[in-house]
Design a protein around this nucleic acid. Sequence first.
DNA 1: CTCTTAAGATACTGCTAGTAGCTTAAGAGA
DNA 2: TCTCTTAAGCTACTAGCAGTATCTTAAGAG
Lengths: 202, 202
Amino acid sequence: MTTRRRGAALEEAILQAAVEELTEVGYRELTMDGVAARAGTAKNVIYRRWPSRAALCIAAYRHMLPSGPDSTPDTGSLRGDALALLTRANDRMSSPVGRILRQLLADIHSDPERMRELRDQVARAGVSHWLTVLARAASRGEVGQQALTPRVATVAVDLLRNEYALNGATAVSPEVLTEIVDQVFVPLATRPPASSDDTSRD
Amino acid sequence: MTTRRRGAALEEAILQAAVEELTEVGYRELTMDGVAARAGTAKNVIYRRWPSRAALCIAAYRHMLPSGPDSTPDTGSLRGDALALLTRANDRMSSPVGRILRQLLADIHSDPERMRELRDQVARAGVSHWLTVLARAASRGEVGQQALTPRVATVAVDLLRNEYALNGATAVSPEVLTEIVDQVFVPLATRPPASSDDTSRD
DNA sequence: CTCTTAAGATACTGCTAGTAGCTTAAGAGA
DNA sequence: TCTCTTAAGCTACTAGCAGTATCTTAAGAG
């Protein structure tokens, strides 16, 4: 073995090895020895770059994320847009990337710093998309002002996330997605402004 | 040390020790040696009763559960009942018992059998209470038929659970609870039956 | 050509789950 | 009261993994 990688090339190889281990065995079963072996290097080389297994895995997770920003769907109806957005969210959460993210979130309670980083990525999972979709529907007269709150905007994704919290790894069925959209999101958004009702508070 | 416990008495002592360790250091930091030491016994005695650390902790979790069934609140208004139910759910989830349950759920992906047992306990976290409350409100004319679905009935608890999935351990504030009730649950339930709207599907 | 840096190899500590085997007390039956 | 079976208690062990330390040697800059 005469060639010896250095710097960025080596770092890239390690991250790539970590990504492969993550997708194959998951976060929990990933070992530093395993990553080192797969990358053709040694553990201490990894520890020179990342302080811990968790840190390495988070870096690898970021490394496997798709890059480009995505567009907001525009199907012409609130229901269509909502279904499109929710389906996209479901696809993400049920992908290997989503699986790994959930494992990371479940395991990183120790480190509140990293915890926050990761959580933000999930928490505002495209809130802006939902607000855009709602605003467009409002301009069409489809929805009223009461729908333009973060709570209502994210209610569908929040419920989807709850499904994953309950089910574990398995993907959520399209039926559940339409149920969430038709029984919760659309009714909430298209609810006519309350006239003789006192549901408005601070 | 002349006295030597046996059978049920010893089992009780071990479970009690495990409960204490769980509440003090949590599931993740609990060690079998720690439990054995606290119970004044040895590890293999524990392993004669439970096959693994996870099994012991689940048994201990069950052992610390409150027993009696609880009543359905009846404040006279849907909003009041919902707030009462949601506050109760929040108290449970933020209690030591809730904290431990979440740790267990996060850590037991390996064992789908035990996974299911535990999950059921969370999943239908008092659905019947919510349906009762909704039925009463319906009989008062406060809500329409569209609200009497499991999805709508559990929407508040589902959103609460989502808060915990995002935040980790910290308790959810009362403000968030009222937000969920006032912006989502009550509007959904009290939504007047759609006249020229096609949001009803199977 | 030399000198600094970091990669590579290996061996180590420390911790924990789970196992093994022996010794001895508990308690039941005679 | 004696005896015999069962299981508690004790101690030592294996195996696996995170993280550390040390030493040798290749890369690459000047």
